[in-house]
Design a binder for these strands. Structure first.
Lengths: 194, 194
DNA sequence: GAATTTCCGACCCATTTGTTCTACACAATT
DNA sequence: AATTGTGTAGAACAAATGGGTCGGAAATTC
């Protein structure tokens, strides 16, 4: 009973690995169960269907991302550094995620709406985080934003803009230099001039 | 008619890519043909079966390897350098091949005998190459091998010994340093002491 | 030792997949 | 113009694969 939840995450972890390698479609329940050294039907004791496993994987991944982002903020003190860290980690993680989903999804596919649902839920969270960062930075006098809500939304828009090439292009983009450029732009537009 | 052979290699190339990603079993004819923008049944005009394509891929890969090795020898002049280059490239290529076959083969599998056939055929070639290298080196006075045949066989045995961990272990091995050690051993055992 | 939890082999059946077959389009050749 | 040869693909099909169910063994807990 306490183990059950634990075993569920074990399933999630291994399934995630196989999904990322072979994609959702090509991954079979047989494989997942074999990797867990269990019978195929045993898996159904923990999850109702293959899709259910997949949803759990996505949810898990989303929480992972959330955690990494919040710790990224806590790692440093000053608001500019917090913002920089946040954006940096966000980019890195999204690059990883884009790899994951490119591998997992069949090129068509209708699973996108599911991801979109998760994503839109996190959008609000992200906005709150950014708003707080901007607000704190402004009240400490290191940022100079008139309205932290709209400023946060603007930043978020920029960040989303950076996702597009990640998810649609195959070409290797020099993430780091692009990142520097973006950060530079944000800071020089937002940091109080002396 | 001249195009036909050309198109066969195009099939081989694309099939190889998909095989290496998804493995033989999970790769479907549908996928291969889709990647080639042809109808599924059209592929059968060029190859009799999925297995036949796979055999062609392996054969192609083997020839690729042979070429890389012979050019590796020609790149340098002195016998020790030739030997070093040969072993170096051989290791690198085998590391790549091991990745390929680990990805392509289902963990069981009876395809091994097929690979073994190809391999044993190349064994003789390799032995001839090594023997020549040793022989030339000895007659130039830079090596000191009593019997180039048996020396070559000894070297080949060592090289095979290095394959084992490549194909069976997952752990990342530091190829370069191991390589240096082996080369050092071979040379200090074979180079005429002053 | 009964109850409950966890596991699995055997089965079901819809879908997939390797392969065959036939027919069609288009050139080249007769 | 008819024939032959080359390349293509759609339809059809038998075999397999794979997701999911079920009844009941094992194992664990009470």
């Amino acid at each position: 009973m306490v183990d059950k939840e634990e075993y569920r995450t074990r399933i999630i972890l291994t399934a995630s690995k196989i999904f990322s390698h072979y994609g959702f479609r090509k991954t079979t329940m047989e494989e997942i169960s074999r990797a867990l050294k269990k019978g195929k039907s045993s898996i159904y004791y923990y999850f109702g269907s293959k899709e259910e496993i997949f949803e759990a994987v996505v949810l898990y991944e989303a929480n992972q991302l959330r955690m990494r982002l919040t710790t990224a903020i806590k790692e440093v003190e000053s608001p500019p550094e917090k913002l920089r860290n946040y954006i940096y980690v966000r980019m890195k993680e999204f690059a990883k995620l884009s790899n994951y989903y490119n591998a997992v999804f069949d090129k068509n596919l209708d699973h996108y709406d599911f991801v979109e649902k998760i994503r839109s839920r996190y959008d609000r969270e992200e906005l709150a985080i950014l708003r707080l960062l901007v607000y704190v930075g402004t009240s400490r006098g290191v940022f100079a934003a008139k309205d932290s809500e709209y400023t946060a939304m603007a930043i978020q828009t920029m960040l989303k803009g950076m996702e597009v090439p990640l998810f649609w292009r195959k070409r290797e983009i020099d993430i780091n230099s692009r990142l520097e450029a973006i950060l530079n732009l944000i800071f020089n537009g937002i940091i109080r001039k002396p």
